[in-house]
Design a protein around this nucleic acid. Structure first.
Lengths: 162, 162
DNA sequence: CGTCAATGGTTGATGATGTCAATTGTTTAT
DNA sequence: ATAAACAATTGACATCATCAACCATTGACG
């Protein structure tokens, strides 16, 4: 349950962590920063399946619901987002549709295309999912306000100039 | 190579991206910072399968190789790390073992336990994988040194006091 | 107009991943 | 010594993912 703490003894972190394997000899500033972020990233990702399961969703289904929030998407576009084959999306959407979370709507402009939209139930579930996802993991929650503000500002700049 | 940019365009969004969905109404400082990190995190994770595929590894196999770097692990410990059922690990390791990347070694202390260790080939492949993984994504690489240093220090503090 | 290549989605075959329930072998406790 | 607990495996089954082949629609071109 808990999630983020893995409880299973072991050394694990403590030093620059799992990074090693190459030379571990520092690298540039970007590598140093990235390596640390990477740690957080994987720790968090490890729980994603369990988190999705709280809503009876598979990890991929949760991802789809997340992506579908902004509006209608063509199936092929979704396949692109997921970096997977179109045929995969068919079954994926089949199951979501069977659960009444999304709907296929044939496009008027091009009748080959099917657009995906969330149903009412889909919107509602997505809301709860996103609320859960945006709850900061302990590592973040425990940070002092100073660091949080700095982190936020740095990330804002980065995402803006991207 | 490119990886991180998805290039697929399409109608789709254009707006602040996938973030929204709840109320987007600020929240506390931790939520603000986390939401931004979360964005980076998912963008990066979308490519993880493709990245693993560069080494003919599935995402999970790549994850396992990563975890196995620090030393021998019991299968049950690995199952804990992956937050999955022990029976799943059996097949996972079967395939990795078939490819000569890992080895099962019965523990002396407790003959129920089987410890996993990387073979020579496994160590070598892991090295290349980790080198590839630790290459910062464009968003990080493009950050000014000031921000990178600040980011690194913040994350170091966070991971240390964790 | 008619043909034909390109595109979007589905289907079928196959393999990897994941869960659960049941089994085998090995501790550990009583 | 018997029973409970545990580590790993097996088998049944759903999901995720790819590829190849297919149908319908679109668009281009003779």
């Amino acid at each position: 349950m808990d999630g983020y703490s893995d409880g299973s003894s072991e050394q694990v972190t403590r030093r620059p962590a799992v990074t090693g394997g190459t030379t571990e000899g520092e690298g540039g500033l970007p590598e140093q920063a990235w390596t640390l972020l990477f740690e957080l990233l994987h720790t968090h990702m490890r729980n994603f399946p369990a988190l999705a399961a709280e809503f009876d969703l598979s990890p991929v289904q949760a991802h789809v619901l997340r992506q579908l929030g902004e509006g209608a998407l063509a199936m092929s576009t979704l396949a692109n987002y997921l970096s997977c084959d179109a045929s995969n999306v068919t079954g994926l959407v089949d199951r979501l549709e069977a659960r009444g979370l999304v709907e296929r709507k044939s496009s008027e402009q091009d009748r080959r295309v099917k657009m995906l939209v969330l149903t009412q139930a889909g919107v509602e579930l997505r809301g709860r999912l996103m609320a859960r996802l945006s709850a900061p993991p302990p590592l973040i929650a425990a940070m002092p306000d100073e660091d949080l503000a700095a982190l936020r500002d740095i990330m804002r700049r980065a995402l803006k100039t991207q």
